[in-house]
Nucleic acid binder design. Structure first.
Lengths: 114, 114
DNA sequence: ATTAAATACCTAAGAATTTTATGTATTTAC
DNA sequence: GTAAATACATAAAATTCTTAGGTATTTAAT
């Protein structure tokens, strides 16, 4: 399990990526999926996830569809067009950011420039 | 220039890495170094940096040494023993975290597991 | 010589995001 | 029938960062 501060700022990117792969997902499903994908190393808490989902919806990146499962109502999220392009941008940006960070963090080379 | 939310949570790791490479540095120097290393893509603001440096010092990871440069006083920071091991941990953890994120974010493969 | 830009430190209000804690309710497994 | 898992949600507090100042010295430009 990673220290929580690492995960900060990446949650949005993860959510957008998940939705761009899966088409639609509900909140709880996202938490399980990420836990499973990362062998429990990244754990998304619901207290962080739900407010974010609501914000992304308010911002026009996501839309929701309520589906009744027995007596319960599941809320599926999917990307709007705007959400789709936002997802691509975020993912590209993050991959690029990782290259930069790797350059800074890796070995002696990272800083042997002067 | 990356969106600021990406940089969140990575500042501490960057500072510790810089100090483990350079031995000692002063705050302003760190901002310039990172800007230079990343071609302006990562910009550390002083409003974020100084409070962090003070916190790391209070936590026993850094120690300071004041050096007079003309009429000005420069404050050099260096790692304590605790800071050194903390640096190694943080860096290793982050490199590992990047692998995990890459796995999630990269292409179709990232999620084609079920 | 004066002025602007760069160097070098700092803090504090507000914004944004996350943690922690809690709540409700249904469904599944033991 | 009870505990665990599923599934949603919010709200107070903590953390971290941005924005926006502030002070002062030194260097570069006009």
């Amino acid at each position: 399990m990673y220290s929580n501060e690492l995960i900060k700022g990446t949650l949005k990117t993860i959510v957008l990526k998940l939705l761009s792969e899966e088409g639609k997902m509900y909140g709880y499903e996202m938490t399980q999926k990420v836990k499973e994908l990362t062998n429990g190393k990244i754990v998304i808490t619901e207290g962080a996830l739900y407010p974010l989902l609501h914000k992304l919806e308010a911002d026009g990146l996501l839309l929701t569809e309520k589906v009744a499962i027995g007596k319960r109502v599941r809320k599926y999220y999917s990307l709007t067009d705007q959400g789709s392009s936002s997802a691509s941008e975020k993912i590209t940006e993050f991959l690029d950011y990782m290259k930069t960070m790797k350059f800074i963090l890796q070995g002696e080379n990272g800083l042997a420039l002067e």
